[in-house]
Each structure stands twice: as structure tokens, then as C-alpha cells.
């Protein structure tokens, strides 16, 4: 029971992380029609910037800010320099160009920081664990991530649903040309949204530092899981991204934690470990296949 509660929280924490990545990706796709693989690089840049600043200054708050700022600045730069030329293009072209950017940024980080993983420490004031469910001590740092992620979700909900900028975002998603015709600077809006998405990716990267090692290519794998999130949730929908992220995070964490154990009750231990590990790393993709069979457009399709 204790273990289950702990793993559910872990799943929640992973889900929140996925949401931070998926939100930016899905917003950019919903409004600009751009599929951006380089989102993985923004996440990585955020993580590197944060780990580096934390190593230099020892301050976690500064590190978070640095991660956010580095990712947002890089995001705005690549939007202005390259990506805005791709909005009207084929998705194939977008994939190829942003794939090229991943190659560039991965190599650039390897040249700057080397291939050895950087380690970041959990800040002292977020260390230790609390027992907010009786009998289940849980690391404060992971709880903090869950809280931050939920706060971001709430902020995004407020921003998109209840502000003037949000209205433009929603309008831009349905009728980009009409919004332009009404005199809105859609270029500026696009850059702004891209910067916001990049900042969220950077935040996710910066917060990941103390949990996982910061290394070249760290964004690539989680990017693909984020794609699963978006497909499951419904492309272009922030609500779908939240639901998909929590679902995928939960399924991934729980199968990894419990599947090998469950298999052990029906087969030999060594085989159960091998098959369990294989199956649990495939679990989210199987989830995606099932969702596709039942609802090809995802759980919360964006339009219509």
C-alpha cells in the first residue's frame, strides 16, 4: 500500500513534467501549425544552463531562472531566425529542419560541456521528505515539482481562457488569417507563444537536473514520450495535454514499478525481470495504440 501511494506520486510527478513539455509543443502546433522537434533541445538547454549556474553560484532559484531564460531566449532566437519561415510549409520540412537543429544543439552542448553528465544537487531547503500521507514519507523536492506543474497548468488555464492574450491565442488557433486581418500582429503573437512554450520546456529541464543526470541528448527520449502524450490527449489541446501527460506518466511509472513483480508470480524470476522491463518500456506505446483504436483523434480533440 505504501509502495503504491509512493509510485502514484512518482507517476504524478513524471506526468507533470511531461505536461510542461507537452503544453508548449501543443500550443505551438495548435496556433502556428508547426511540429517542433527542437523542443527537446530547449529542454536540454534549460537543464544545462540551470546545472551550470547552480554549480557556479550554488543558488537553486538563480539556476531555475537561468534555465527558463536560456531556453526562452534560444526559443525566440530560432523562431525569428528559422522557424517562422516554416509555418506555412509541409510538416515534413518542419520535421527535417528542426531535426537538423537537434543535431546542432546536441553537438554544441557536447562541445561546451563535454559528454560527461553534469550532476545538480537538490537544494537544501527542498531536501528531506515529508509524511503528508501518514506512513508514506515522500521527497519534498518531488512534491515541489508536482506543485509547480499544477500551478503552471492553472496559470495556463487562466491565461488562455480568461485574458485578452488568451482570446487571441484561441482565435489564432482557429482562424489565423482572420486574426491578422483584424489588425493583430500575429508575428509578434507567434513569437510570444513560442517563447512561452520554450520557457516551460526550460523550466522542466531545470527542475529535472537534480533528479536525473544532465547530458547531451537528454531531451530526445522524453520528446518522443511527449509526442505520445500529445497524440493520446489530442493534438493542439492544452486540456488534452494535461490529461494525456498525467495518464502517460502514471501508466509508465506504475508498469515499471509493478509489472516485473506481477509477472514473477506467474513465471521464473529472471525471465519475469527481462520481459517485465521490456513490456513496461513499451506500455505507453501500447496505451497510445489502444487510444488510437478507440478515438483516433485523441481523448480531447482540439476543434470539433
Amino acid at each position: 500500500m505504501t509502495l503504491l501511494a509512493e509510485q502514484v506520486l512518482n507517476g504524478l510527478q513524471f506526468g507533470v513534467m511531461l505536461f510542461l513539455l507537452a503544453a508548449g509543443l501543443t500550443l505551438v502546433f495548435g496556433i502556428m501549425g508547426l511540429i517542433n522537434l527542437a523542443h527537446a533541445s530547449l529542454y536540454m538547454i534549460g537543464a544545462f544552463a540551470a546545472a551550470w549556474v547552480q554549480g557556479r553560484t550554488g543558488s537553486f532559484v538563480l539556476a531555475l531562472l537561468a534555465g527558463l531564460a536560456a531556453a526562452a531566449a534560444t526559443g525566440v532566437a530560432i523562431e525569428v531566425a528559422v522557424l517562422r519561415r516554416l509555418y506555412a510549409r509541409d510538416h515534413m520540412d518542419q520535421v527535417l529542419a528542426t531535426f537538423g537543429m537537434i543535431l546542432f544543439f546536441n553537438e554544441a552542448m557536447a562541445m561546451l560541456f563535454g559528454r560527461q553528465p553534469l550532476m545538480a544537487a537538490v537544494p537544501g531547503w527542498l531536501g528531506g521528505s515529508v509524511e503528508f500521507i501518514p506512513g508514506v514519507p515522500y521527497p519534498v523536492y518531488r512534491l515541489a515539482i508536482i506543485v509547480v506543474g499544477m500551478a503552471v497548468a492553472a496559470l495556463l488555464y487562466g491565461l488562455i481562457g480568461h485574458t485578452r492574450v488568451g482570446m487571441l491565442i484561441r482565435a489564432g488557433a482557429t482562424h489565423r488569417e482572420m486574426v491578422r486581418a483584424l489588425g493583430v500582429d500575429i508575428g509578434l503573437l507567434s513569437t510570444g507563444i513560442f517563447g512561452l512554450g520554450a520557457a516551460l520546456a526550460g523550466l522542466a529541464g531545470a527542475m529535472t537536473g537534480p533528479l536525473l543526470s544532465v547530458q547531451v541528448g537528454m531531451g530526445d527520449r522524453i520528446l518522443i514520450t511527449t509526442f505520445v502524450v500529445i497524440v493520446v490527449g489530442g493534438i493542439g489541446s492544452v486540456r488534452g495535454a494535461l490529461a494525456g501527460a498525467l495518464l502517460v506518466g502514471m501508466v509508465d511509472t506504475l508498469t515499471r514499478a509493478f509489472l516485473p513483480g506481477l509477472l514473477k508470480s506467474v513465471m521464473v524470476a529472471t525471465e519475469a525481470d527481462a520481459i517485465g522491463a521490456g513490456l513496461s518500456s513499451m506500455a505507453v506505446f501500447i496505451l497510445m495504440a489502444v487510444v488510437l483504436l478507440v478515438r483516433p483523434r485523441g481523448l480531447f480533440p482540439a476543434h470539433g
Partner: peptide
Amino acid sequence: EHWMIVMGPILVFVVLFAR
């Protein structure tokens, strides 16, 4: 050894200008 740092921009360039 860092050939990818050249390969990446070449790719972006091809997509943008040599469609």
C-alpha cells in the same frame, strides 16, 4: 569529430532554400 554541428545547419539550409 563534431561533424554534426555542420550537418545540422546544412540540413536547415537545404529545407529552407533547396526545397
